[in-house]
C-alpha cells in the first residue's frame, strides 16, 4: 500500500504543482487584489462600485440578455438539426460530411468566424444584398453594432455545441421505447413529448449550459460585431487590464464573472443530473 501511495504522489505531483502555480495562484492573486487597496488595506469598495453602479447593471443585463437569446436560438435551431442528422438522414456519407462541417467551425478561431459575419452583415454584404434582392427591405439593414448582429454571430459560433450534445443524446435513445409507446396507442406528438424529449433532456441541458456559460464570458465575437457600440461584461474586464490598469477593480470584475459562471454551471448541472435520474 505504501508503494502505491508513493506512485500516486509521483503521478499527481507534477500536474497538481503546475495547476497550483499557474492556475490557482494567479486566481488567488486576482481575488486578493480585488479585496485590497493600493497600500494593502482590506476593502470591499471595488465590489461596492460594481454593485451600486447603474452602468454595471446595464452591462450585465445586456450580457445576460444576449446570452439567454443565444442559448434559446441555439436550442431552437440546433435541436431540429440534430434530429435531422440522427433520425432523418439515411445516407451515412452525407451525415458524416455534415458532422465534419459542423465541427470545422469549432476548430476555427472566433476571429475568423466573426470576421466572416462582419463581411456578410455589412451594408453591402451578402445578407443585405439578398434581403434587398428579395424585396424584403428597401434600404440596407444595419446589423453591425447592434445586438441582432452580435446575436447572429454568437448563435453561429455556439450552435455546434448544442447539435453535438443533443445529437449524442438522441443517438443513444433506444427507439424500442418509442415503438412501445406507439404500440400502446399513443400518438407521435405525445410520444415525442412524454418519451423522446425527457430522454434527450440531459443532453440538451448540458449543451445549453455550455452555450450559456460561453456566451456570458464571450469577448471576441461581441467585440468585433459590436463595432464599439455595445459593451458586454468581459469587455469591462479587458479594459481594466489593458488600458485603465486598475487591477483592483479589474480583479473585482473578474471574480464577479467567475462566480456568476460557476454558479450557473453548477445550477444547470444539477438540473441536468435530475433529468438524467428521472429518465
Amino acid at each position: 500500500m505504501a508503494a502505491s501511495r508513493t506512485t500516486l504522489a509521483l503521478l499527481l505531483f507534477a500536474p497538481l504543482a503546475f495547476f497550483a502555480a499557474f492556475f490557482l495562484a494567479p486566481m488567488a492573486v486576482v481575488a486578493l487584489t480585488s479585496l485590497t487597496t493600493d497600500d494593502g488595506g482590506l476593502t470591499f469598495a471595488h465590489y461596492a462600485r460594481i454593485l451600486f453602479d447603474q452602468y454595471h447593471w446595464d452591462v450585465l443585463w445586456v450580457t445576460f440578455r444576449i446570452a439567454l437569446a443565444t442559448t434559446a436560438l441555439c436550442l431552437l435551431i440546433g435541436f431540429p438539426l440534430a434530429w435531422y442528422l440522427v433520425r432523418i438522414v439515411r445516407w451515412r456519407s452525407w451525415r458524416r460530411a455534415c458532422v465534419i462541417l459542423i465541427v470545422v467551425p469549432l476548430f476555427t478561431s472566433n476571429i475568423v468566424r466573426s470576421f466572416g459575419w462582419m463581411v456578410l452583415l455589412g451594408r453591402t454584404g451578402l445578407v443585405n444584398q439578398g434581403l434587398m434582392g428579395m424585396g424584403m427591405t428597401e434600404r440596407p439593414i444595419r446589423f453591425l453594432g447592434t445586438e441582432t448582429g452580435i446575436l447572429i454571430g454568437m448563435v453561429y459560433i455556439l450552435m455546434p455545441f448544442v447539435v453535438l450534445s443533443v445529437g449524442n443524446a438522441l443517438a443513444k435513445i433506444d427507439t424500442a421505447l418509442e415503438d412501445a409507446s406507439a404500440d400502446l396507442g399513443v400518438g407521435p406528438a405525445r410520444t415525442f413529448w412524454f418519451v423522446t424529449l425527457p430522454l434527450c433532456l440531459p443532453g440538451a441541458v448540458s449543451g445549453a449550459i455550455m452555450v450559456f456559460a460561453l456566451a456570458v464570458s464571450a469577448y471576441v465575437t461581441p467585440a468585433l460585431l459590436s463595432g464599439g457600440q455595445i459593451t458586454v461584461f468581459s469587455m469591462l474586464i479587458f479594459q481594466q487590464y489593458s488600458s485603465v490598469f486598475d487591477f483592483h477593480y479589474g480583479g473585482a470584475l473578474s471574480v464577479t464573472l467567475l462566480v456568476l459562471t460557476l454558479v450557473l454551471v453548477t445550477l444547470a448541472g444539477r438540473i441536468g443530473e435530475r433529468g438524467r435520474r428521472a429518465a
Binding site: 499557474f22 492556475f23 494567479p26 486566481m27 492573486v29 486576482v30 455550455m210 456559460a213 456570458v216 464570458s217 469577448y219 468581459s234 474586464i237 479587458f238 481594466q240 487590464y241 479589474g250 480583479g251 473578474s254 464573472l257 467567475l258 459562471t261 460557476l262 454551471v265
Partner: peptide, 11 residues
Amino acid sequence: VLPYVVLGAAL
C-alpha cells in the same frame, strides 16, 4: 468552463 478572459488577466 472558466472564462478565458479571467485567466488571461490573472496570468
